[in-house]
Write a protein that binds this DNA or RNA. Sequence first.
DNA 1: AACTACTCCTGGAGGC
DNA 2: TGCCTCCAGGAGTAGT
Length: 284
Amino acid sequence: MPELPEVETLRRGLAEHLVGRRIVTVELRLPKLVAEGRLEELEGATVTGVRRRAKHLLIDTDRATLLVHLKLAGQIALRRADGASLAVGGHPVPRFDAPLPHRSTHLILGLDDGSRLYLTDIRHFARVWVLPAADAEARLAALGLGPEPLDPAFTPRVLAEALAGRRRPLKPTLLDQTRVAGLGNIYVDEALWRARLAPTLSAGDLDTERVERLHAAIRAVLHHAVTEGVAQVLDGRAAPGTSFPAVHGREGQPCPRCGEPVRKARIGGRGTYTCPSCQPVEHT
DNA sequence: AACTACTCCTGGAGGC
DNA sequence: TGCCTCCAGGAGTAGT
């Protein structure tokens, strides 16, 4: 999916154009997209806000909350009546400027100004929940999500507490949404590279200085992705001539910091990219 | 507690 | 061009 920066970028775009709009039509093309609730409840509802928690997108209306998880390959696009793009984010396939609906478009919401919101997912993993607002909150609470890394409350101390006592390696620990919310495979690799930490280091063994480095790196990588708009154009692999991602998807290419070839390994079942020189495996 | 394997799907890339 | 294999920005479940 769409990790935190992609969902946040999407949230901002949708909030700008969706709040105050009334949903007039609902077209569901893939019934299993709906994990709970009835989309018909949204017909006639007015959007009151668009929020994000971890990788979840919440579209609040005066009738119910539409909770969306894009998983690995979900994409949401908001198009004006004339087809012009108002907001788009998530997985870059189909291309953000491709004609819609795509054959993998599973949901279309028609708004009162003629614009349409398309949810497309080539892998059919994305899910939505239509819930009373309180139930949406309860559902999120039940997930036990960890702290939001871009929240001011996310301090080095909070990160230290999230990692304390964990014997698993950093990579799977940081992917665990109950430790830190919103990180995914790309941004974990980028943050660890930036912090010069090997993904195999035991999470609970980091000293204060390393925790502070990791904290700063997580914030910097996410903040950069959101503010520089890289989250909107990122296509899962490094484009030639660009500086992001620094290591993810760049096996064999020179580390931007030291020139050593980037190495790919499998850690916790996930493709993991590191600079073996910048991220030494020695511990303590 | 934590590890692995497996599941839900399709598309794109790379090898031949 | 086509066929084949592998991999993929997530996360839940089951078995060890």
